[in-house]
């Protein structure tokens, strides 16, 4: 019986949705393989979150309560996670396949001679204790299965919204403080300041259940106010096409697509977006796709579950009214 480690992504003291999705997935896998699930929390606030982590499958919680986790770039997290590996003897790590965390996984993989598979949308047990990971490549045009070579630790980067959150009814996990002594190099690059720009009331597009996206068809920057209005009726995040971010109408971190974020919400609503292949590469795995575009030939309609051919400035304000009426 071994431990599966799950690296918990957290913000403002609370685990992100992806963390609970990973724990729920790990719990199912661990039940099948006779393993247990241990969460790893780097930085302050673990004890407050312990009950939540336990309720989603963690029976142990490795904790490094140090401000250093966020004061320097990447390496303190690598070394703390390495300490968790040493303490647990684990062979498997699930980590959120988000940008900064991939760096942590890449650096630790070099140290531990592990194999890394990023952006997994499915994980199954294979032979010889190897996990079989499903991932989508070429912007979701192809679905592939991969595994890590025998004898190497398995690092699986989990895509957002690939697994459901399940309440397993577990009690509070045993909390184990990690003993971490940072190497000299680990504090060589420091975080001077953190610029938070995102709206606190709107979910991040990576984890939002619904994403509303706007493109060049909005015509001007103020069109995003309409997108935000629509988003707020249904609790959605707001994203954009590259044409819109390039124009400076919305920040680059909200760009959806090949060179922006990859999202998999349950519902994507795109307005004034043509659906170029580079845009589809970031959203075509959304469960349901809605398109509002005045051009009936726009390629986005080929992948739309529901499409409206029309002027978004006519359709979206009415949609906001109709949705508000249904909310009662």
């Amino acid at each position: 019986m071994a431990e599966m480690l799950v690296l918990i992504d957290h913000t403002e003291g609370a685990p992100r949705k992806i963390a609970l999705q990973m724990l729920s997935a790990a719990k199912t896998l661990a039940e099948g393989s006779g393993d247990t699930v241990a969460a790893v929390w780097l930085g302050g606030g673990a004890s407050d979150a312990a009950a939540t982590l336990g309720a989603h499958g963690a029976t142990k919680l490795y904790h490094w309560d140090s401000e250093d986790a966020a004061a320097y770039v990447t390496l303190p997290q690598v070394e703390a996670l390495q300490a968790a590996f040493e303490a647990s003897g684990a062979d498997t790590l699930l980590f959120p396949s988000s940008n900064h965390t991939k760096d942590v996984a890449a650096r630790l993989a070099i140290r531990l001679d592990a194999g890394v598979i990023t952006d997994c949308t499915g994980i199954e047990a294979g032979e010889g204790g190897r996990w079989i990971a499903t991932k989508e490549v070429f912007g979701g045009d192809m679905i592939t299965t991969s595994k890590v070579a025998d004898g190497k630790p398995q690092f699986l980067g989990v895509a957002a919204n690939a697994f459901p959150v399940e309440d397993t009814g577990g009690g509070a996990p045993e909390i184990v403080a990690l003993d971490v002594s940072l190497s000299e190099g680990a504090t060589a690059s420091k975080v001077v300041s953190v610029e938070k720009q995102a709206s606190a009331d709107r979910p991040d597009i990576g984890e939002a259940a619904i994403v509303v996206a706007g493109g060049r068809g909005l015509g001007e920057e103020s069109g995003f106010q309409l997108m935000e209005q629509l988003a707020d009726v249904v609790g959605a995040g707001v994203g954009a096409s590259r044409a819109a971010t390039d124009a400076g109408w919305y920040p680059h971190r909200y760009q959806i697509g090949q060179t922006g974020r990859t999202i998999s919400p349950t519902l994507y609503v795109g307005s004034g977006i043509s659906g170029a292949i580079q845009h589809r590469a970031g959203m075509q795995t959304s469960q349901q796709i809605v398109a509002i575009n005045k051009d009936p030939e726009a390629p986005i309609f080929q992948i739309a579950d529901f499409g409206i051919v029309g002027d978004l400035y006519q359709v979206v304000p009415k949609l906001v009214e109709e949705l508000e009426a249904r909310k009662g």
Binding site: T11, V73, V194, K196, Q197, R253
Partner: peptide, 10 residues
């Protein structure tokens, strides 16, 4: 990052 950016130095 998702919420903005970190100013980092080395």
């Amino acid at each position: 990052h998702e919420e903005g950016w970190d100013v980092v130095q080395s």
